[in-house]
Design a binder for these strands. Structure first.
Ligand SMILES: [Zn+2]
Ligand SMILES: [Zn+2]
Ligand SMILES: [Zn+2]
Ligand SMILES: [Zn+2]
Lengths: 133, 133
DNA sequence: TAACACGTGTTACTATATAACATTTATCGA
DNA sequence: TCGATAAATGTTATATAGTAACACGTGTTA
């Protein structure tokens, strides 16, 4: 049985997957309105957070936007590299780096629960393009 | 000579320094309105970004808020650990970790310009308090 | 079926951030 | 010193982001 909520999750995943760059909640909203008429922000915000919870969507904190996971459903924290030229985002996975960070902040007794690691810069292909120009 | 802009920067720094936790732009705004009457959001947003530029204030991306640097004026990127219990933020500095992250995302040709590293969790004193309770 | 719990829809609102333009202040050559 | 010009700051309005509160419907249980 497919609930209405799961229907929205699927729709939203489809929108996110069509874009190589992160998409804000309101951009998703606009897209869905084209095909579904009136849709409320709440609908959009509820679904990504449940999608994030089940490891299919990232919230990109430094952009206030969402992006679909690049690899299949998983639970690990990703390091996101965000190209400020073309908007594309890549995921990197490095548990040992997360551990190092946890160790560092843990020296003062801090217990990490969630890591936000987002690197802004320029992606390889944009750098190439800039060089040629 | 002290410009109006520098005056605002100083005021805002004072507000940020009085709080151990990050402060949103609109919280700063409210505080300043108590003493200065009408103040526009623009005023608040301009000053922190120039303060951030000169290495005195962090923008905490995952909170949409600002916090004063804990050590004296500096330019290095900090790792922020944010207690979700009491709101306090600590800075850690670890250039070698940043280098590792840069190396990792650089494998695909990505050139990092700005690192956002924010760890959410629970600080030492809050953990203590929880244990005792 | 009545009662309830829960998921979803709807409305209205709060919070966050910036664009565009007006005004003031600094700079500098005439 | 005096405009002319450029830069910084003030002001207004608006765009974008996010949530609270409650209404409604649907499925479950007794
Ligand atoms: Zn993955
Ligand atoms: Zn790019
Ligand atoms: Zn420092
Ligand atoms: Zn704490």
């Amino acid at each position: 049985m497919i609930t209405r909520g799961e229907m929205w999750q699927a729709e939203i995943l489809r929108v996110l997957n069509r874009s190589h760059a992160p998409v804000t909640a309101y951009e998703v909203l606009e897209t869905l309105r084209e095909t579904h008429g009136k849709v409320a922000p709440t609908t959009i915000y509820r679904a990504p957070s449940s999608l994030a919870d089940c490891g299919r969507v990232h919230r990109v904190e430094s952009l206030n936007a969402f992006t679909a996971y690049q690899c299949d459903r998983h639970q690990h924290t990703s390091i996101l590299s965000i190209c400020e030229e073309c908007g594309s985002v890549e995921e990197s996975v490095a548990p040992e780096l997360l551990d190092e960070i946890s160790g560092l902040v843990g020296r003062s007794g801090f217990s990490p629960m969630r890591h936000v690691i987002e690197v802004h810069g320029m992606c390889g292909s944009c750098s190439m393009r800039k060089l040629q120009a």
